[in-house]
Design a protein around this nucleic acid. Sequence first.
DNA 1: GCCGGTGCTTACCGACCGGTAGGTAGAATC
DNA 2: GATTCTACCTACCGGTCGGTAAGCACCGGC
Lengths: 193, 193
Amino acid sequence: MPKPKRPTGSTRERVLQAADRLWGERGVRGASLDDIAREAAVTKPTVYYYFADKSALFTAVICSVLEQHGGPLKTAARRGGRSRDRLISALAYLIGARCNAPRLLREGGVTLTVDQNSQARSAFFRHFFSPLQQILDDGVHAGELRQMDTAFAAQALLNLLDPWTGRDQLPGGREPQELATDVVGLIVDGIGV
Amino acid sequence: MPKPKRPTGSTRERVLQAADRLWGERGVRGASLDDIAREAAVTKPTVYYYFADKSALFTAVICSVLEQHGGPLKTAARRGGRSRDRLISALAYLIGARCNAPRLLREGGVTLTVDQNSQARSAFFRHFFSPLQQILDDGVHAGELRQMDTAFAAQALLNLLDPWTGRDQLPGGREPQELATDVVGLIVDGIGV
DNA sequence: GCCGGTGCTTACCGACCGGTAGGTAGAATC
DNA sequence: GATTCTACCTACCGGTCGGTAAGCACCGGC
């Protein structure tokens, strides 16, 4: 290849956004490339002009979406001095951002190459997992949180949130901020007496 | 209809088990009726002999699997006098039982009729959700757990567990009992000091 | 010895899937 | 003004999807 020089015009962006929206709503196998092309107001070959195949589009969607949420999430994770407030702020962002990438990543339905898969997972760790773990580590270090396996706890938090992110309807009609507060209350204080 | 009188022979059971296994591994849209028929060592029309269509099979799989796990789960939920032990016991069963039904239920990918959907959800509440909530309610009543919205907490517990049930590989190579203990430790004691 | 129901099969259907062949309008380059 | 490249199109491919028509082997009842 003499020059990769991938185009970065607005069409490519429209396809990425359409794929994120439709796959987020229906799952990767629930929306075809025809659907996505229609949603982006282009034809299917145009999708193939920008992406090698379905799994390449899948990876690109995840990486792009994770990347564009990474910054705001890290910012939210710095808001509020105490661990509890930083957690609420980060979780509220995760819930409100309607970001489907982590769920899509877990689907992994399409056959990804090892390389694509590791690329997507690395983006997930960098932009989503690690800011959360950082809050926990800081909290432990500051003596506000007890000693624990912070990787396990961060994963548990993301698991807990997962069915509630990227959705319009939250349990009990809560707002993102309320749900985040309730979840953090549950997990910080525990349910024991 | 003069008489439902559905057959209950071993073929029907084989189809149900095959659908549970394949759909649990690959998702509802990831395994076709041809795949399921092959796995059950019958032909596709045989599937249609026992089930009206794909969504009827979907509902039947979920209800059947939930039903057959309901008893053991309730038994596990009674083991151990203290709330903490009862929770560990119930969660360890959920993790170890490799039951895919709740995840499939959430997929809901296929178009279910309102009736089928409510039937499946009712089975889920009866056999999975309510035993868990019962432990929490008992714990609150006995003064072992703090006052809380037990429905919210039970849902959060199931969410937290969801990515780890029905899988062969658990995080950190844990056994079901270990994972249940860690999860209950996290949620009962909390991560705050 | 024929009949009708049960439990299953072979052979097929139209719709839709991911993916491709081949062409073209228009801007950029020379 | 001829050439080349970018960004996109129409039209189609082989394969797979959920679902069906039609019939066959086996059975107990008469």
